[in-house]
């Protein structure tokens, strides 16, 4: 564990806490893409198949349970919670995310570290996470104004993989046999997808204005 990875995990945790706060405090999921939440649920379920077979550390296991639990809880809320589901706007959350699932799985069948059930699902989860934010970013562009908590949620979610990139650079220089090129390339793509969001977020913060993404 290094400071970059720990900062990344904490930033990821904060993004989830901000999302949970928004949904539970406001009893509303306006501006949140259910499809992105479903994709994250698939990402964590596919990535943590080794949850009960490989014990790395208490921290690792607890964080995996938090990530799986929170993503499934949000999906449940947006689909079934009596009050929350009313604020879900199906008409703006129209990204066809099943293509992302199919495409990433196909890619994982061809590009993986080892052709085993777990490694193919692990690579699938890495590729899917890189594109999971697309429905959310498209929804924000469609819905124009972005409320503060949603904006902070996306900001932290984008920043966490940026910390992981620093972690991979650090590990590359400090560990001899370190080679996580699947994670690195996907992490770079994932962080790059947030580039324009980060830009408009910075502009709105500098001008102390409401965050607006151009349509």
């Amino acid at each position: 564990m290094n400071i970059f990875r720990f900062a990344g995990d904490m930033t990821h945790l904060i993004s989830i806490l901000v999302l949970l706060l928004k949904v539970y405090a406001t009893k509303s999921c306006s501006g949140i893409s259910l499809k992105t939440q479903e994709l994250y649920g698939i990402v964590f379920l596919a990535r943590y198949l080794d949850l009960f077979t490989d014990f790395i550390s208490v921290y690792n296991t607890v964080m995996k349970l938090v990530f799986i639990g929170s993503s499934l809880a949000i999906v449940w809320c947006m689909r079934f919670h009596r009050v929350v589901k009313r604020s879900y706007d199906r008409d703006v959350d129209t990204f066809r995310h099943y293509f992302l699932v199919g495409g990433c799985f196909l890619l994982a069948l061809f590009v993986h570290e080892k052709f085993s059930f777990r490694e193919v699902f692990w690579a699938f989860s890495i590729y899917l996470e890189a594109v999971a934010i697309l429905p959310q970013l498209i929804l924000l562009q469609r819905s124009g104004n972005v409320d503060n908590l949603t904006g902070q949620y996306v900001l932290f979610l984008g920043a966490y993989r940026g910390f992981y990139i620093l972690n991979w650079i650090y590990r590359y220089f400090t560990e001899d046999q370190f080679s996580r090129w699947i994670s690195c390339v996907s992490g770079l793509v994932q962080t790059a997808l947030y580039a324009d969001f980060f830009y408009y977020y910075f502009i709105s913060w500098k001008n102390n204005a409401k965050l607006k993404l151009p349509a």
């Binding site: 490989d54 790395i56 690792n60 692990w122 972690n167």
Partner: peptide, 10 residues
Amino acid sequence: SVDEDAHDEL
């Protein structure tokens, strides 16, 4: 038990 190729990152 941690086999050698277990992914230690979240």
